[in-house]
């Protein structure tokens, strides 16, 4: 099979791979880079399980041709923690019941991350709207909303602390 080179930054590191040209970003992440944290529920753009951040924006990686990402910055669930310290969103999802089976969780986490990066004080309505493309069959979403709100509060607190210092 003919392969083509692809260079991108994944979770802050430069990565070069040689891929089959038809592959989606999802396939490259999971199969070529073995970053299996990103999931799939449909591979048709219907469930949100495959969401990753592409240059800071959430995208459905099953719908993105990997070759289009040449030179781009990709963040997956594996890249959310700050070294050994979990991101406030990860902590809150684990603490407040926002993850049950956990299969939708990576997609929700990165989508929520993009939201809070842009709108640190997102309202419940904005959270719900931002996450409306992510399906979760387990939680009923409410504990997910709460986790995002808790994380937002924690991030805001941390920022205030920094300002004071």
């Amino acid at each position: 099979m003919r392969t083509v080179p692809l260079a991108l930054r994944v979770n802050g590191e430069a990565v070069e791979v040689s891929i089959a040209s038809h592959k989606t970003l999802l396939e490259v992440l999971r199969e070529d880079l073995r970053l299996t944290g990103t999931k799939h529920g449909c591979e048709l753009g219907e469930c949100g399980a495959c969401a990753v951040l592409l240059d800071g924006k959430p995208v459905l990686s099953c719908l993105v041709l990997a070759l289009e990402c040449d030179g781009a910055e990709v963040v997956t669930v594996e890249g959310l923690a700050h070294e050994a310290r979990l991101d406030p969103l990860q902590e809150a999802f684990a603490d407040y019941g926002a993850t049950q089976c956990g299969y939708c969780t990576p997609g929700f986490l990165v989508t929520a991350k993009a939201l809070l990066d842009e709108k640190p004080h997102a309202t419940r309505g904005e959270i719900s709207a931002a996450l409306s493309g992510n399906l979760c069959r387990c939680t009923g979403y409410i504990q997910i909303f709460e986790a995002v709100e808790q994380a937002a509060a924690k991030i805001a607190d941390a920022r205030e602390d920094e300002v004071e210092r």
Partner: peptide, 10 residues
């Protein structure tokens, strides 16, 4: 939950 950490880190 005891498996919470694994689920949020992928």
């Amino acid at each position: 939950r005891v498996d919470g950490r694994a689920k949020v880190t992928g």
